[in-house]
Design a protein around this nucleic acid. Sequence first.
DNA 1: CGCGACGTTGATTTGCCTCAACGATTGTGG
DNA 2: CCACAATCGTTGAGGCAAATCAACGTCGCG
Lengths: 189, 189
Amino acid sequence: MYSQLYNHINKFVKLSSGEEEILAALLKTVSVNKKAFLLEQGQICKANYFVVKGCIRLYFIDIKGAEQTTQFAIENWWLSDLTSFLFQKPSEFFVQAAETTEVIAIAHHHYEEMFTQLPKLERYFRLVLQKSHQAAQMRIRYLYSMTAEERYHHFNASFPEFVQRIPQYMLASYLGFTPEFLSKIRAKR
Amino acid sequence: MYSQLYNHINKFVKLSSGEEEILAALLKTVSVNKKAFLLEQGQICKANYFVVKGCIRLYFIDIKGAEQTTQFAIENWWLSDLTSFLFQKPSEFFVQAAETTEVIAIAHHHYEEMFTQLPKLERYFRLVLQKSHQAAQMRIRYLYSMTAEERYHHFNASFPEFVQRIPQYMLASYLGFTPEFLSKIRAKR
DNA sequence: CGCGACGTTGATTTGCCTCAACGATTGTGG
DNA sequence: CCACAATCGTTGAGGCAAATCAACGTCGCG
């Protein structure tokens, strides 16, 4: 039960089995079918999600009606619309399964309780957020210094197996261009 | 001494005066003149910086030789090249004062010690990082859904006083376009 | 099998960049 | 306190990367 999350946590802080039990009482496993939603625009984000298996994405619909993917999460990553989750206000985003996915959810009303009962996890989440912060910094760096084609090749070289797993239109929006343009890049070789 | 930082921390976690003293031993105040550097490309980022007064920015030089601003920090914000700081490896970024600035620095060799001695600060930094994460998510949202002109007007409406403080070329690169283009947007009204 | 989702291809358009020349403002040394 | 340079901002002409739009394949699934 939740052993994959425990393993991940234990890379950063050590939990006793008693502590694991306390944590377990606050968690819930959720299965989502491909294309199903954990959060839809206008709803309040109910939980922070840890991906056990599969892939979920965070996206929004822009003014022209196009989907824009802002984040992916695969195995051992957390994902949520933090703004909606923390302040319990309506979200401008969708959280959708890109594949059939199993996640561990920590609901909002358990989130603060978790830190009260297990202050060690403050450290775990700080370290997780530091990693996210680094990733976000890199993302901006690439967006501001590479052409669309360069970003695609770079991403493809960095995460070849991941590129296989997701539809091209999701990748295109994540990298900041259109599916048509991705198709044209690919046609070049 | 460091009272502005203590005030900021106390918004999130309460420190006793004894704890403030422990923290003080790990900190250092640094003054930087306008245009001077706290970090230059190729150097190892020595500290995480809290802005007491003024403004610093994180930027890099792209392949064409243009400066690209990835972050600003004004009063009560932390800034660092986390990748270089955490792993003590050479940075691809510059940290420069946009104005004459006073910062409080926590050096790398004190950073982990700080968390050991004052575990409460795990929580403080988690909360600070959560806020950064939200800001990064918004940033991507705007980049992916607005034109350059819209981003400028939106930023200008959101932070009118800040726009006055910094040169236009820094703002242009932060918003993801050229100084010339910013000039043309402004000429429209 | 047929339909809807996804991907491809080509023609055309456009938002923004590039480059270059020219003001304006700031700051610095004589 | 002025002269002059450097920095910063403006303006215009031309170009290009990527978007848009539309038509057409193709695959998977009910």
